[in-house]
C-alpha cells in the first residue's frame, strides 16, 4: 500500500509542472528551481507525524474526547479519541491512572492491508492513515482488523471512520483538536522527521511504550509513563483491576 500514489501529491506535482511551464515561458527560471525544490516528493521534505502521550500528566478531564467530538460531530455512542481509566490494587495500595487513546497511524497498519477497495491508505507525505468516504463500502473488515479498536462505522455516512490526526488542521499548520484542548499538555504532536521537534526530543530522552507491540503494527503514538494494565492479564492473587475504556457505552472483555 505504501506505493499507492497519493492523489493530492500527484495533483500538486501536476500543478507544479504546469506552473513550471508557465514560468519558463515568462523567463523566471529561478522561481522554477525553488518551486521544484519544495515538492513534497523530496524525501527530506516528507513528514512523519507522531504523538507522544505523557501519561503522567493526564488527570482524566476528557477534554480531548470532547474537543474531538466537537471537531467532527462523531455520532452518539462512538468516539475517535478517548481516555481509558485503569484502577487497580487493594486498599490502601491502590492506583488510578489514565490512558489517552487515539489512532496510532501505524507504520504497518493492519486496517490498510485488509481493505478490499483501497479506500484507506497511509499517506506518503505525512504518514497519516486516511479513509476516503467516497470509496469505502462499509464492509467493516478494517474495524475487525484494528487491534486498537480505533475504527468504527459512522452511521451517518455508512463508512469506516477514525482519528485522522485532524488532517484539516494539521495541513494548515495547526495542532490536532485533542492536543490543543489538553490542559496539562499530556498530548504532544509533531514531526518525527524533524530532529528539532518536541516529539523527536521527547522520544530521544524518555523510556517509551506503545500499545500492543506484539501485533507488529509499529504504532506512531508513543507513551511515557503509561500503565498498560489489561483486565485479562493475570494479576497477583486477589488484586483488583478495573479498566474503564470509555470507548463507547460498553466495556472491553
Amino acid at each position: 500500500m505504501d506505493e499507492r500514489p497519493d492523489k493530492n501529491r500527484l495533483s500538486r506535482r501536476g500543478f507544479l509542472a504546469a506552473g513550471a511551464g508557465a514560468t519558463v515561458a515568462s523567463g523566471l527560471a529561478a522561481t522554477v528551481a525553488s518551486g521544484s525544490a519544495e515538492a513534497p516528493s523530496d524525501a527530506a521534505q516528507r513528514k512523519k507525524y507522531a504523538v507522544v502521550i505523557d501519561a503522567r500528566r493526564c488527570y482524566g478531564v476528557h477534554a480531548c474526547t470532547v474537543a474531538c467530538k466537537a471537531e467532527y460531530k462523531v455520532p452518539l455512542g462512538e468516539n475517535r479519541s478517548w481516555v481509558e481509566e485503569v484502577e487497580k490494587g487493594n486498599y490502601p495500595d491502590v492506583s488510578r491512572s489514565f490512558l489517552p487513546r487515539l489512532c496510532n497511524h501505524c507504520n504497518k497498519p493492519s486496517c490498510v492491508s485488509v481493505c478490499p477497495t483501497g479506500a484507506t491508505w497511509k499517506r506518503d507525505e505525512d504518514g497519516i492513515v486516511v479513509i476516503d468516504k467516497d470509496i469505502c463500502i462499509g464492509c467493516k473488515y478494517c474495524v475487525q482488523a484494528c487491534p486498537y479498536d480505533m475504527r468504527f462505522v459512522n452511521e451517518d455516512t455508512g463508512t469506516a471512520d477514525k482519528c485522522d490526526f485532524c488532517i484539516h488542521r494539521v495541513s494548515q499548520g495547526l495542532q490536532p483538536a485533542c492536543v490543543e484542548a489538553c490542559p496539562s499538555r499530556a498530548r504532544i504532536f509533531g514531526d518525527l522527521n524533524d530532529p528539532d521537534s518536541e516529539v523527536s526530543k521527547l522520544i530521544a530522552k524518555n523510556p517509551l511504550t506503545v500499545l500492543r507491540p506484539e501485533k507488529g503494527t509499529k504504532p506512531n503514538v508513543y507513551y511515557i509513563g503509561a500503565d498498560h494494565t489489561d483486565e485479562r492479564d493475570p494479576r497477583p492473587d486477589g488484586m483488583y483491576v478495573d479498566v474503564k475504556t470509555n470507548r463507547r457505552y460498553k466495556e472491553r472483555r
Binding site: S113, V114, C115, P116, T117, G118, A119, I135, C136, I137, G138, C139, K140, Y141, V153, N154, E155, D156, T157, G158, T159, A160
Partner: peptide
C-alpha cells in the same frame, strides 16, 4: 450488511469490483 447499504448508498458495493488487491476480501470477491 454493508455500512454503505445501510446508510443508503445502495450501489457503493460496486467499488469492490473496481480494484483487485491482496486483501483476503478482494481476493475472495
Amino acid at each position: 450488511e454493508l455500512g454503505s447499504w445501510q446508510a443508503g448508498h445502495y450501489l457503493r458495493f460496486i467499488n469492490l469490483f473496481l480494484v483487485a488487491n491482496l486483501s483476503p476480501m478482494s481476493v475472495g470477491t
